[in-house]
Every structure is written in structure tokens, then in C-alpha cells.
């Protein structure tokens, strides 16, 4: 009995610690965000939040739905692997709008655009068609001899 009395102050400390632990457990129960652990050690709802991010590039298939003429042409030439938005930029605002004509995309500046892919560079794959843009075109617009959608001259 005396031992218990003389160790009483240790009991108080233990009680204090237990109280702290208890408070922590209760607080934690309420503070852990909803959906945490739904799929793994993270907030489950975050997947939907990330998916809600808006799209800027509509995707080639969407363009082809309306511009089938261009699409057909493109598919028949060596630019077939090049997506529309690779040259025309992000056009989701145009393609997914109710009135695409109201968000008409500006036409690309051909010289800068073509040179970006075709300007000679020793690090490019050897079989990739490359030219020294200035020398090859003589400063003329690339589009006066090449159709961007079917680049083989005279096609």
C-alpha cells in the first residue's frame, strides 16, 4: 500500500500521458480527411479532382470529325503521323465549342513552323527529311511550294 502512495506522483504523470494519447486519438479521428485510404495511403477523392483539370488539346480525332477534307489529305501524305494540333496549337477551345467559327484559330506562320521540325540538325535522325530552310526556300514561304497537309511538292 505504501508503495502505491509513494509512487502516486508517477500515476499522475501516467494519467497525463494517457490523457494526451486519448486526446490525440480522438482529434485524429475527426481530422483525417474524408476518403483517405479509399484506394491506398492517400485521399481517394483526389483522383476525381485531378481528372477535373480542363483539357487544352482536343485531340486529332475531334478535328477530323469536322475537317474531314483536311484529314483525308493529311492521311494520304507523309505528314500523316503529325497531329493537327502539333501545327495548329491547342485548339480545344475551338473544337469543343458550340460555335467553332467564333473561335477560329489563327493560321500558323509557316516558315517558323516548318523550320522547327525540318531545319537541318545533326542530332536529328539521319532519315528524317531536313533542309537548310533559308537556302532551300530562298526566303519564300514554304507553303507556296508545299501544302502543309500534303507536303510532297506538286501533290
Amino acid at each position: 500500500m505504501r508503495w502505491f502512495r509513494d509512487a502516486g506522483h508517477l500515476g499522475r504523470v501516467a494519467l497525463l500521458l494517457l490523457l494526451g494519447v486519448g486526446l490525440f486519438v480522438v482529434a485524429r479521428h475527426f481530422a483525417v480527411p474524408r476518403g483517405f485510404g479509399q484506394y491506398g495511403h492517400y485521399r481517394g477523392p483526389v483522383l476525381k479532382e485531378i481528372r477535373a483539370h480542363p483539357v487544352s488539346y482536343a485531340g486529332r480525332e475531334v478535328c477530323e470529325g469536322c475537317h474531314s477534307d483536311v484529314a483525308e489529305k493529311l492521311a494520304g501524305g507523309r505528314h500523316k503521323t503529325v497531329g493537327c494540333e502539333s501545327c495548329h496549337g491547342a485548339q480545344a477551345a475551338h473544337a469543343n465549342s458550340d460555335d467553332p467559327g467564333a473561335h477560329k484559330p489563327p493560321l500558323p506562320n509557316a516558315l517558323a513552323l516548318c523550320a522547327r521540325c525540318h531545319q537541318q540538325n545533326h542530332s536529328k535522325p539521319k532519315n528524317f527529311p531536313q533542309v537548310d530552310a533559308m537556302e532551300h526556300s530562298g526566303g519564300e514561304k514554304c507553303t507556296s511550294c508545299h501544302n502543309p497537309h500534303q507536303p510532297k511538292p506538286g501533290a
Binding site: 483522383l47 485531378i50 481528372r51 487544352s56 488539346y57 486529332r60 503521323t81 497531329g83 502539333s86
Partner: peptide, 23 residues
């Protein structure tokens, strides 16, 4: 990089693959 999670879960490809001219 999110691998364009907002795109691939809608059936689109990623923005980088969309514009890659040589695949």
C-alpha cells in the same frame, strides 16, 4: 507529370504524345 491523368481517363492520349510528330 501526371501522365495527363485528366486526359487519359477520358480516352485521350497525353498532350505530349498528341503533338509528337514522329510518334
Amino acid at each position: 507529370c501526371t501522365l495527363c491523368y485528366h486526359r487519359i481517363t477520358k480516352g485521350l492520349t497525353t498532350a505530349c504524345c498528341e503533338v509528337c510528330p514522329t510518334q
